[in-house]
Simulated scan of single mutants.
Amino acid sequence: MHHVILGAGPAGVIAAETIRKHAPADTITLVGDEGEPPYSRMAIPYLLIGNIKETGTYLRKSLTHYADLRIDQVPGQATSVDAAARTVTLDNGTQLSFDKLLIATGSHPVRPPIPGMNLPGVHPCWTLEDARAIMALAQPGARVLQMGAGFIGCIIMEALAARGVELSVVEMGDRMVPRMMGPTAGGMIRDWCEKKGVKVFTGTKVEAIELASEPEGVVGKIASAIGLGSTEPAKGLRVKLSGGQTVEADLVISATGVRPAIGFLKDSGITCLLGVLTDEHLQTNVPGIYAAGDCAEAFDKVSGKTIVSAIQPNAAEQARVA
């Protein structure tokens, strides 16, 4: 039997390991869309602080771990699933046939529709590649503005503060961590941050991000004048806020939330709501196709509803069950 797992994060890895325990002779293919060994995104803040190296983010420390378990690793990103034909198509043209499929594609960052989001110096904090770019810019004394003060945003914010940057945080909600904290707790977090020197803007939106200055030098000025852009760096960014304030920054980090990465399942025949809808066994409406982790919408005993619970412990347990 051939098991195909889409996604090489914690859910995908734990599912592959669990299958191997129960099915020693089956074929397992683990599809990942990054060039790194499977790693934990939740470890990235510790990388930013400097507590660990990149290898410290890896889910398994042995470089031969997956080969030892006969788990075939395939690079690529799923672009479509044909549930009837039992095939997955990847962005590199590869087509994989499966007997059983696990969708563990996780989340992707929400990209707010703000002018200037594509400028150099504006980054999400989601991948190791993002982390490298952030570490290059977030040097001591650098001016950093972070969009979003939710749960993940506050973890990123703490890592940035530890790097000694001049930090500003902009949150649309009326308090910090608005989805998890009430007014009192959110206010306590804000007070603590401000005592640490962090500028906090709540109830505020970023309206635009602009270059703070034109590139210097004759080449840069000519290129800008004729609309070609320049290879010479501009001097910082100017961030316009809804309250009328303007904040100068060397780095802007977007931490405005995530959404399940399930767009490739359109027309697949697999039922999706906010995430991939599953039953209590993490199976979808199509027998033999399962989902786990950030992309799965599974039954929650507390609320009695199906929810997307995008935290790593849940991803791990859902993967084991699936």
Rank of each mutant, 00 (worst) to 15 (best):
S268C: 03
E280S: 15
P10Y: 04
L69K: 10
R86Y: 12
I156L: 14
G293L: 00
A78K: 10
T87H: 05
H108I: 13
N285V: 05
V302K: 14
A67Q: 15
L48G: 09
R60V: 04
G203M: 06
G269E: 04
A225R: 14
A78C: 10
L251P: 01
K199P: 03
V206C: 13
T18V: 00
I311L: 14
F299R: 01
D191Q: 15
S62Y: 09
L237Y: 01
F299M: 11
K240E: 02
P215I: 09
L237D: 00
K21R: 10
L90P: 00
T231P: 02
M117I: 15
I307V: 15
A136M: 12
R238W: 02
P45Q: 12
P112A: 14
V13G: 01
Q139K: 10
P37N: 12
D130H: 13
A142N: 05
V276M: 09
T306E: 01
S230C: 08
P45A: 09
A159P: 07
T18W: 01
K305D: 08
E207W: 02
V258Q: 07
I114G: 14
E129F: 02
G263I: 09
V206S: 08
G32H: 06
R20A: 11
L101K: 09
S97I: 01
D191A: 15
G173S: 04
I189P: 00
G217A: 08
I14T: 11
M147E: 01
K221F: 07
E207N: 13
